[in-house]
Structures are given as structure tokens and as C-alpha cells.
Design a binder for these strands. Structure first.
Lengths: 254, 254
DNA sequence: CCACTGCGGTCGACATTGTCGACCGCCTGT
DNA sequence: ACAGGCGGTCGACAATGTCGACCGCAGTGG
């Protein structure tokens, strides 16, 4: 039975639709958006609601995502081996570098943040675990594109979306950058996604040298860079953290 | 068509099963645990995998939850109206009280934490957003049980699980406590779930006075209590935060 | 070194199951 | 008061998911 189960694919599409639009959606909206009969959409929504994946505003009758997703998302993190092993190293890195640390894995056409350590003694920040970052303009993303053929494939041939003046939007430029990244073993991104923010990332691989994710530090360009380049000491910290996590992952096997 | 969609319910059961067991599960394990034919379980797992809700370890062939759940869980938080409006108030409360703040909603037989503000200037803590707390032994839970008939219904007639010597395990005791909670308008829990931890909670209601969630502060019993009772000043802070959030929710409508 | 047992995965027949589009009652804005 | 939209229901139909036997492989113990 090498075909996907229709009702499940549709349910997934509905949940993604609900996740996309910031506001709640009505039954008819869902049905027309996905080109389903109202009855069909209703059946799926009712089941999703019973299971807690979708909630219905009793007042307006409109639907939104449900709490069970949050719970299961948390369970995903609990089981995630990379994240578990990286926790302590990420902490150390944040303390050593004095900057925010992110841990990301490839997911669809982006980097999914699975761990986030706040910059020590910084002002209040929002936790970004569960959010996505672009592949072509962040240190995390470019590391993955450079080392993971799947990531490179997901990216396509561009041109890519431009966020700042420094964003690389052409596939040829990005591939050249990736060659450089592979050569020196780390990636940076200086104001390529957000003005004023620079980041440095390095690859995490498992025991068989498969790329499984990336770590990066991210902070104000004034602190992370010097004379237009990222500080070598920070690069060293990130790379050694990445190596430590990779070693830890390999060790877990035996 | 007032029946749930079979394949969807089964898919949900599989995901919950994967979320429950801490380790990865094989196809046969899943199939036997849920009493499904192997082919059926495989079809569902394959579809879930395609959609990103489940991942398969390419080495062992075993399954675990997928990254898409984390992303959707995050989207749930983004849309969550109660959480959005409560963010700033929870912050203020944490600062004023100098303690950890939790924001929770009823979900199945527990309280789902949807927001968590760390205790200011405290040692490193783990974020508990997405985790569940028991209904019968926490301030958040008891508030909901006292005011929300649905929560009371979910709880059942006990006896309830005991975590410490002070846990209320009998329905009659808990109902008496709930009457008290309704009378004075707030709940506490002094070492009823974790030794050394006390918490104070109050109800959040929407414009039509329906209970929609609860806030609490939680901290070391030595700081939160005095002479065996919670400090009145902290109670006042929590209650005023709860009122502020409720007012904010009501205001959003017009 | 080889049966053997377990695994994940496939296949095709069957009928259960999800789908469809018309229909219903309700609320809302006109 | 009406019309148009909503969420929700119903029942016929056949497409669909389900089932259990089967396959090839990997690890294992004889």
C-alpha cells in the first residue's frame, strides 16, 4: 500500500493551514481553501477536535490549533537525542561566548530551532524554540546547506528571498559560499537576515559523520564582529562546542 | 456523519503512544500495542512520516515523533489569545512577586502550561511550557477544578495519586477545599505536589465569566509561606494579575 | 556456516469507511 | 422579514483504508 492515507494527508493539510493563518478559520474557509466538500472537512475537523489537535471557539464556531499539539511538541523535544546531548554544551557555549546560542535541525525548507539559550545577563528575550529560520541567510542554515545534500536540495535554485542588502539571493553565490564553509569548517552570517545581527555556526554530525544539525551563536554585530569579520575567538568556541556535541552523540552508541 | 474518522483516531493514538514511551518504538511494537494489523500501522506511520509528524531512525527503523509537531505546537502558542494577552501581566507578576509564574489551561486530565516566566535572577531553570501538571494537587489545577465543571468532571471521584504527605487524595476533601477556594477566590498548594514548593493560583475568565485558565506563582515554601500559610501580599499580587488578564481578555472583544 | 526467528515493508482482495453534495436550522446584516 | 451566509447533518455510493499472508533482510544461536 505505497500510497499515503488520504484522510491523514488532508488532516495534516488542515492543521498546517490553521497554523499558517494567524486568525481562526471557519469550516467553509477550510473547505474551500483545500478544495474539500464541507462534509468531509467537517468530519476531519471533528475528529481532530476530539483528539485535541484542534479547538473550536464555541462562540464563533471557528477553528484553531489545539493544545495536544503543544504537548506532543514538547514530547518531541524530550525524546530528541541531539537536543538532550547538546543541552549542557550549549549552556557552556553561551556562557563562554556571552551570546545567545541556537541549536537547529533541518526541517522542510528551513532550520527548526530545537534549543535556545538566552544571552547571559541580557534583557528579557522571547524563546524561539519551535520557530523556523531561513536556510540561505543564517549561519545555521548555511552550515546545513553546505554539508547536507538534502538541505541543498530543499533550497532549490533561487533566487532566494532578500531580507537585507547583504542577503545572498543567487544560487551561484550561495554555492561558492558553501564551498568556503566546507573548506574552513564554519559558517557566518553578518546582517544577512536581520540588520545588526551576526551569527557564527558549525556542523554537528553523528557517529557516521552524517550531518544532523548545527549550533550557532548570534548577537549584535558590534560584539560579534571586529573590522568587518567575526571574531576568531568566537569561531573557536562555536567549533569546539560543535565538536563536543558530535563526540557526545557518537559516544551514546556504545 | 457523527462518527470519528477511524484512521485519524488511530493516527492520534499512535502519536500519543510515541509521546508516552521515552524510547523509540518499532513498527511491530506499535501494531501490537494498539491491536492493529502491521500493514495498517505501517500505512499510518508512513503517512505521518511524509507529513513530518513522525520520524524514522534510518538505522534501526524505529519511529519517534517528528519535528512538525514542534512547529505546530509553537503555532498554537502564537495564536493562543489568553497567552498573548497574559504575557506582559505575567512578566509584571514575576517581577513584583520575585517568583516563578505559570499560566495554565485545562487539557484532558491535567493543566497544560502555556506560559512560564522564570524567577528573576534565579539559577538556570528548564522551561516547562508544554508540560502538564496534575489537577488535584497544584494551585493551577485546584483553581480550575473549583471553577470549571469540566475540570471537576475530568478529575473523577478518586482516590487521586499521592505525591507527598500533604496531597489530597479523597474527592470529599478536595471538594471541600474547592468550596473554600470559591469562597475566598484563590487557591494554594503547599507541598502537595513537590516537597519544598508552594504555589498560589487564581482564576482567569473571559468576558462571559467562563473559566479559561489560571495563573500562579510558585516558589520555595520558605519564601512563599509564613507561619504555615501563604503570604497575603503574594495572594494579592496573584489575584490582581488574574483580574488584569481577565479584564484584558474582555476588552479584546470590543 | 547455516537454518531460524524476528524485524520492517509489500501486496492484493475485500468490505468497511470516508467521501460527496444536497439539505437543515440558525444567526446576522440589510 | 428576508436573503445569504454560517456550521452542521444525512444517506447513498464507491473509493478507500484495512487485513493477513507474504517477502527479503539482519541478527542469532546452534
Amino acid at each position: 500500500m505505497p500510497g499515503p492515507i488520504q484522510s491523514l494527508s488532508r488532516a495534516a493539510a488542515i492543521m498546517r493551514l490553521l497554523a499558517g493563518g494567524e486568525r481562526r478559520l471557519g469550516l467553509s474557509e477550510v473547505a474551500t481553501a483545500l478544495d474539500l466538500a464541507k462534509g468531509t472537512a467537517h468530519g476531519i475537523l471533528r475528529t481532530l477536535q476530539q483528539e485535541g489537535f484542534v479547538e473550536q471557539d464555541p462562540e464563533s464556531g471557528k477553528y484553531q490549533l489545539g493544545a495536544e499539539l503543544l504537548r506532543l511538541g514538547q514530547s518531541y523535544l524530550d525524546v530528541h537525542e541531539l537536543r538532550a546531548r547538546a543541552l549542557v554544551w550549549a549552556d557552556d557555549l553561551a556562557r563562554a561566548a556571552g551570546e545567545t546560542v541556537y541549536l537547529g535541525v533541518l526541517h522542510q525548507q528551513g532550520v527548526l530551532i530545537v534549543h535556545h539559550v538566552f544571552r547571559p545577563d541580557d534583557t528579557r528575550q522571547v524563546l524561539e524554540v519551535g520557530s523556523m529560520q531561513p536556510l540561505h541567510s543564517t549561519a545555521l542554515g548555511k552550515v546545513l546547506v553546505a554539508y547536507d545534500p538534502v538541505a541543498r536540495g530543499e533550497l532549490g535554485d533561487g533566487p532566494y528571498e532578500s531580507y537585507t542588502l547583504r542577503t545572498l539571493t543567487e544560487a551561484s553565490d550561495l554555492d561558492a559560499e558553501c564551498a568556503l564553509i566546507r573548506e574552513r569548517g564554519w559558517a557566518d552570517s553578518i546582517e544577512e537576515t536581520w540588520e545588526g545581527v551576526a551569527s557564527i555556526g558549525a556542523l554537528i554530525q553523528d557517529r557516521r559523520r552524517n550531518p544532523v544539525g548545527a549550533v550557532c551563536i548570534s548577537g549584535a554585530v558590534e560584539r560579534v564582529c571586529e573590522d568587518g569579520f567575526v571574531k576568531p575567538s568566537l569561531v573557536a568556541s562555536v567549533r569546539s562546542a560543535a565538536r563536543a556535541i558530535s563526540r557526545d552523540l557518537g559516544a551514546g552508541r556504545f
